[in-house]
Amino acid sequence: MSLPPAPRRSLFRWRPDQQWEGYLFLLPSLLGFAVFVILAVTMSLGISFTSWGLTGFRAFVGLDNYRALLRDPVFWQAVRNTAFYLVTIVPMQLALGLAMALALNQGLRATGVYRLIYFMPVVTTVVAGAIVFRLLLSNNGLINVWIQHFAQFTGLPVTPPNWLGSTRYARWAVVILTLWKNTGFTMVIYLAALQGVPRELTDAARVDGAGGWQRLRHVTLPMISSTTFFLFVYQAIGAFQLFTEPFVMTRGGPANSSLSVVQYIYLAAFRDIRMDKAAAMAWFLFIFIFAFTLIQNRLQRRWVYYETE
């Protein structure tokens, strides 16, 4: 990144006061940053190396909290669940959001109305969404009624699952809620990217005889690959930090089958008052996210196309 050029040291332009003025402008932000970010991060790291409970600091324990977590089956369950959320929610959301955006980008009428509707869940409180999906996914809820009708209609041997009460499907309930809530966001960003693809490119491909699928595969998708990369990383970081959805909808259950890592951090810190364990877990999460982002950054060179101006 290039920075604005230094003012030339001519008699008329040189402003010695910029030195302290800069700090003055920065002061309010810097104060908050020092306390709620720098101090907080340092404290968090410090606490993770101590025994810290209801009464505060007890002893310095080195890496014990981290080692204990590695032996904690619930932690591994939460890690597995979070990995599940990552590999289901992120690709499904990108595919759905792209499909919606492509459909909306065809110059149909009423595009604005569709976009208004698809984006509605994005502005709603997750908690309200979780409440409704608890009802829709309950044993004789709307979704299971639909599945029953579908089974009767097609004669397929489909039995509606007990979404919220089974260790197998509770995670899917969280996935469904998250897709409903967030796909509109992906769609809107994709739509903005699609509108930036020059018409001449797709037109030229058409003249060369490329069909709709080929144009999408070889022209449109490469042109919006930087957006795909951004959405991929953004949604993945969101999936790593999933909290409200399982917290309200399934309470992490049954038998921790839908418990996310952040939810376990919350429970450790504020139910069990084990700040040390919770802090160590938060740093594990940081390492996961950091490693993931680093790997993606490496891999992006292979498939992301950046327009150079």
């Binding site: 940053f33 709620f36 970010v37 720098i38 101090l39 907080a40 991060v41 404290m43 968090s44 606490i47 970081i237 790593f240 930090q241 890592v261 952040v262 951090i265 810190a269 700040m275 919770a278 802090a279 877990m281 938060a282 740093w283 999460l285 940081f286 996210i289 950091f290 982002t293």
Partner: peptide
């Protein structure tokens, strides 16, 4: 610090 997830700072 943009890289640091919220759960890291919520406890402190």
């Amino acid at each position: 610090t943009l890289m640091i997830p919220f759960p890291v700072t919520v406890i402190p």
